[in-house]
Design a protein around this nucleic acid. Structure first.
Lengths: 220, 220
DNA sequence: ATATATTTTTAGGGTTATCTAAATATTAAT
DNA sequence: ATTAATATTTAGATAACCCTAAAAATATAT
């Protein structure tokens, strides 16, 4: 089924919201996610339900039907593959790629994505450490812990970030924190949750709780 | 100024039509080029005129204003750069790239195009031999002659094709005729304009006038 | 359990980009 | 120079997305 950019964006929003909340997506949540009005969301939900892409009952929130999940997953696949392309091949920095990938993900061509995937050597994770679903929609699972949950003496590699905002990523750049950085917890302050950590066994820096919650670590 | 995909397609159509015809584009010509109705064209022309992108007087045809030319040229630049990417990096064949590039050309990011251009090593021509305008909109000019205008004994390199249709390009594939092929005219038949030519000094083949008119040769 | 607050839907509009059919202007032909 | 043919524009609709304001449904708080 061929969808419009708007329809695709709604499916992706519903997917992300219900994934995070582990329940159906509310009209308001979708409206906020897409920076639009609740009335516009209701409007679109009716059309998506008509096309059998979502389960929608008035006032009850929405979930994706099988075809909706498939479409949303493929969009995420395309978005993340393009992000890898932008960073690995065009040398963009990880804080510059979201908006462009947001456009590129709507390009329609199965062949293009197959070839792009091969060209990039079948990456499993994007530049923010998010898993790239394969052509069948399967995500690679990886054990990871927010830095904020780690204890004094523990060590691990930074494998992902939760917050993708430019502001946050630029701040990490300024701290010289990037995917692959080895982080060792020196101590954590119970009072405010801030932590002192060592990066790659070299520089010691202080990280606030807000930041630590958004850094995903593979322990060991 | 930010334009819609539809507006961009109209500007590109007007550019191509008036370039080929060397005069203003008619409503019907635009309608045919975009496979739409004349009424829709009139409608859009009013809006483009309102935005100062074209010169439009009822019943008189249209020409592009400076800003319209600039936008059309940048679209052509983007389209052709993406085609180079698809063929050179993703190994698509020259007959498969038009539709995909047609979508990619609407992606909006100056930075993306700058980096793509660098990544591709600043190509001057696309996979069909069409010149790629530079960031300032300047096209590289190259002397070229349709094969149909060449005479017995003359030789040259295939540098471009006029017809971009999949059918035509696939036919050339089957003849093993590609950009860079050296073509030597053995003789031409005045009766129907067909020609016997040698490819790369090896195989002799016969080419009809219809095909010869669409092959662009750099003599010598 | 009832009042209040919040969420969601409906009603009524607006814009963009299409369409077909009808009217009008231009061009070509005799 | 009329008439016929062709090209173009106008008129009137439709569909997709979006909006604000008002109404209705649901959730919450005392």
């Amino acid at each position: 089924m061929k969808l419009s950019t708007a329809e695709e964006n709604y499916l992706k929003a519903i997917f992300k919201i219900s994934e995070k909340a582990k329940k159906s997506a509310s009209t308001n949540a979708i409206a906020k996610h897409l920076s639009t009005s609740a009335a516009s969301v209701t409007d679109m939900l009716k059309r998506l339900a008509e096309k059998e892409l979502i389960n929608y009952e008035k006032y009850k929130g929405v979930t994706l039907k099988t075809e909706g999940i498939k479409q949303a997953t493929q969009l995420i696949r395309k978005h993340r593959l393009w992000e890898v392309f932008l960073v690995k091949k065009l040398r963009f920095s990880w804080d510059q790629v979201h908006e462009i990938a947001e456009q590129l993900e709507h390009i329609e061509s199965k062949e293009l994505i197959m070839r792009l995937d091969a060209f990039l050597d079948y990456p499993k994770f994007d530049p923010h450490g998010d898993p790239i679903p394969n052509a069948d929609g399967k995500f690679t699972i990886r054990s990871q812990t927010p830095l904020s949950d780690m204890h004094k003496g523990q060590e691990g590699k930074l494998v992902g970030v939760k917050d993708h905002q430019t502001e946050f990523l630029k701040y990490l750049n300024s701290l010289n924190v990037k995917l692959g950085t080895i982080i060792t917890v020196i101590d954590s302050v119970p009072y405010d949750g801030s932590m002192n950590v060592i990066l790659d066994g070299k520089n010691e820096i202080m990280i606030t709780a807000a930041v630590a919650q958004n850094l995903l670590i593979r322990k060991g």
